[in-house]
Design a protein around this nucleic acid. Structure first.
Lengths: 328, 328
DNA sequence: AAAAAAATCTCAAACGTTTGCGAAAATGTT
DNA sequence: AACATTTTCGCAAACGTTTGAGATTTTTTT
């Protein structure tokens, strides 16, 4: 009914189940003659190993858990794409679990990973995650755990993240070198430590400079848009705007378009982005690249290291680079 | 070492494994006294059922397979988000498999779904998928199969897709009613049947009208951009541009921005989109909504119907609706 | 107080694989 | 031809759970 099993093949060939099993995995104990016999019949009968049985027997799954706040986000989905791509190459699949940035759902999802005996889990923690026992449980089961992007400060573990400060500093210095005098800087969710770090580093760059700097925290395009609009309508409007994320960039640009300003001439804009959005505008926006794709590749590499030799804990930081557009 | 098992609980409590198993699932045969005893200890010991063992015993997994060309696409990732969200509510997880629009990887992925005994699979076929035996195999195993978005014409099955024609017709009629005289229409991958249908329906609307219509096929923003640029630089430039997708819209708008034209005044624009991109421009773009999110919800609903009562095959079509912006 | 019914629990097989160890068959060595 | 090796294979247990059917205990009925 459902699928061919080793037992069926063994019966049909008059050999034992173990021989069939070994034949299929090219075990040296088995003669090449029976190997081909087995292979042929298995092929004919469309034999496919039962992943559950294997998982039960070996107590692992060829599956990675991937915990993420939301997949509808160009940064995360390029991360996911990268991890999936690499995983497939080595025979792993990925199980995606969204938390909706909700800490409770996050622990549910961690539980799911344990129940499924996944081979490893990648996690980008929710903003309000406070308790780390669920993560400890994962570790107790010897399941490799890789934090990425939003990583916990106060918890030890493998971490792969972007150079938070570098990207902010790079942006700030670009603005300073261009000789701008009044800067409006938009940052994301104030509660996130990544935001805090960036703000601090960014502000530091402007110390002792004769440049006016105003910083604001925003969570969505719909907040940024009106704020930019009113800022640009003031008498002393900013001559440079910094955008910490794509969403913010979109909000800023919407205001810029609304006022029919030309970026790079009437006002300068610089963003932190993974690169898609800056290129949909003309002139293109100058940005500091933070690639979800690269981050994904790095996280995957780290995961494989953990699986192969359960080595010590590492924190990896992906550097960012400035991509010149014509907006500043 | 790894995790608590039923056996351990049963031994500790001096009762049989089956009693423990039944107690945990609230079976009527078990007294409430032992139920609470079991529940307490299970809780204390952090018992978590082994998904592999359950899967092996019951021959199913609480997992849906999700086959998709690429997840880095706002339409698909909102689809994925919707399916994941709903699945979680009923205790299912999703396994994401990208084909990269490659038919061979697609069959590999289908195989993975079978090996994992998933409870159901959602699939958006690759553009060149020709052979349907792998899908038959899925069906033979009584695994519910839901095609979505890019569905095969020549293959019977459950299908959930957007009203291809309606969205094109809606766009066309909006253009006609606005009194435009020269239309430039960009469509996506020429080989896809969905494209063919839309083109045909779109063209039909313009029959017997005194409107100039030029259609072009494009696959990326980088193609659309220069083409739009040159079209808008001609003497008789189009007064309305139709964009079949978000990517095309971005390409068109880049040219519009480049030329410092104002949408809705200098040139009209209308798109088919799931709604994010049209709203990042000012004025906002008028579009026909085709929501990946809604499609996901519908596909999920259909999946649950299939799981509950293995009813007959259905084809569901999600209607589209015009969202007014100021671009036409 | 005995018989019948109901409630509660246990046994044991099964799901499909993997794997250590021992058995049989083939080959090589004196 | 007898023995030692090597090659090839089979046995059986184990992974953790579910489930039908039977066993035991408790409660109800007569």
């Amino acid at each position: 009914m459902t699928g061919t099993t080793l037992k069926e093949i063994s019966k049909a060939l008059g050999i034992s189940i173990s021989t069939v099993s070994r034949a299929l995995k090219n075990h040296p104990d088995i003669s090449s003659r029976t190997k081909t016999k087995v292979a042929e019949l298995a092929n004919l009968l469309d034999y496919e190993p039962n992943a559950n049985a294997i998982g039960l027997r070996t107590n692992t799954n060829k599956v990675f858990g991937l915990l993420i706040p939301s997949i509808s986000n160009s940064f995360y989905d390029s991360f996911v794409a990268a991890v999936e791509e690499e995983s497939r190459k080595v025979g792993y699949s990925i199980m995606i679990l969204q938390s909706g940035d909700n800490a409770e759902i996050e622990v549910e999802n961690l539980k799911l990973c344990r129940q499924n005996r996944v081979s490893g889990v990648f996690v980008c923690i929710a903003s309000q995650t406070q308790h780390y026992e669920p993560f400890n449980k994962i570790k107790e089961q010897k399941i490799p755990l890789i934090f990425f992007d939003k990583v916990p400060d106060s918890y030890e573990g493998n971490k792969v993240c972007l150079a938070d400060k570098t990207s902010a500093v790079l942006s700030a210095n670009t603005i300073i070198q261009s000789g701008k005098k009044s800067v409006l800087a938009f940052f994301g969710n104030e509660k996130l430590s990544i935001t805090a770090k960036r703000v601090e580093a960014f502000k530091d760059c402007f110390k002792n400079k004769k440049i006016k700097l105003e910083t604001q925290f925003c969570n969505s395009m719909n907040e940024v848009y009106p704020q930019t609009l009113s800022a640009l309508n003031k008498n002393q409007k900013p001559d440079a705007i910094f955008c910490m994320s794509d969403e913010i960039l979109c909000g800023v640009m919407k205001a810029v378009l609304q006022l029919k300003l030309t970026v790079g001439k009437d006002v300068s804009v610089i963003a932190i982005s993974d690169g898609f959005f800056p290129k949909i505008y003309a002139p293109e926006i100058t940005y500091v690249e933070t690639s979800g794709y690269k981050l994904g590749k790095a996280a995957f590499t780290r995961m494989m290291e953990c699986i192969n030799d359960n080595s010590e804990i590492k924190e990896i930081i992906i550097d960012s680079v400035l991509i010149q557009g014509a907006s500043i």
